[in-house]
Amino acid sequence: MIFRKQALLVVDVQPSFAVPEGMIRDITALSRRLYTIATVERHDEAITPFERQLGWHPGADDDSLVPADRIFIKHGYLPPADAIDHLKSLGVDRVLVCGVQADTCCLAAGFMLFDAGLHPTLLKWLSIGSSLDRSADLGANLWRHHFGSVLYSADALRLDR
């Protein structure tokens, strides 16, 4: 399949999560080659009850650890609808997704992108899973099952620019 326009969605690469330095470096390098948006999970117990239900919460003032053209603040697992609307307004047809929690937050983004008519593609080598599976294998398997598109290395990534 040939894609007219691609963008990168970086999910929750922020201080509250233990993100490997090498992954941050490699996502940063890719963000310099593609239009990039990033989500940052911020805690607001009135919106998402992380503390009450899970006994944990992300920082209230975290920022993205990678540069992006646009940053979208989110509360909970889903990216904000305005992030998806922004990608659609750019005429993007494929969204490369990477970041934290391939089996939850990245997967939630994949469902929203898919439902919006975009083609979500997980960049597994630039993703980590939740504490259940840090390797991101579970997330990649779920992603492949639901959306069919997972790239496992930079060699598989084709960029026109």
Rank of each mutant, 00 (worst) to 15 (best):
L107H: 14
L118V: 11
I37K: 01
P80V: 00
S89A: 05
G76Y: 05
K74W: 03
C106P: 13
C105L: 05
L123E: 10
I71P: 04
L107N: 07
D62F: 11
R134W: 05
D133W: 12
I37P: 00
V40F: 01
A29H: 13
S131A: 15
G148D: 07
K5D: 02
G22K: 05
W125I: 02
A156S: 10
H57M: 05
H57L: 02
R32C: 06
H57T: 07
R134M: 01
C106T: 13
H146C: 07
A136F: 02
T104A: 02
E51A: 05
P80I: 04
S127D: 09
P80H: 01
K88F: 06
L30N: 12
Q14A: 00
G76F: 06
Q6K: 15
I27M: 03
I71S: 01
R158G: 03
D82F: 03
T121D: 03
S131V: 15
L34F: 14
W56V: 08
H86S: 02
R158S: 13
F72G: 01
N141G: 03
D160E: 11
R70M: 07
A38K: 03
P79I: 07
E45M: 00
H119L: 13
H119S: 14
A154M: 11
P120N: 15
A68D: 08
A154R: 15
H119K: 14
A108V: 15
L118A: 09
F17S: 04
A83S: 11
Y35S: 05
A116T: 12
D115H: 15
E51T: 12
L90H: 08
D44P: 10
L123F: 10
I128N: 02
D155W: 15
D63E: 13
L65S: 09
N141C: 04
N141Q: 12
R25E: 13
L142G: 08
I71W: 04
M112T: 12
D85R: 12
R33L: 08
L126V: 13
S89L: 04
R52I: 04
I2N: 08
I24T: 09
C105A: 10
M112W: 14
A109T: 09
D82V: 13
P49L: 03
L107K: 11
D85E: 08
H57R: 11
D160Q: 11
A7V: 08
L118W: 14
P58K: 05
R25L: 11
H145P: 09
W143Y: 15
Q101N: 12
V11F: 05
L54R: 13
F17E: 06
G55Y: 14
F50M: 08
P120V: 12
F50H: 12
R25H: 12
R42H: 09
V92R: 08
D82I: 06
L96E: 09
R161H: 12
P20H: 10
G139D: 00
L122N: 03
I128D: 05
D85C: 03
P67W: 04
K74C: 00
D61H: 08
S16C: 05
G59F: 00
I128Y: 07
G139V: 02
D133V: 09
V40W: 00
F147D: 04
V97A: 00
L54V: 10
H145F: 15
L54I: 10
L118K: 10
F114C: 06
W143H: 15
D137S: 14
I71Y: 07
K74Y: 06
P79G: 02
E21H: 09
D93I: 09
S131P: 14
P49M: 01
L96W: 12
G76S: 06
Y77W: 14
F114D: 11
I27K: 00
L65Y: 10
G55E: 11
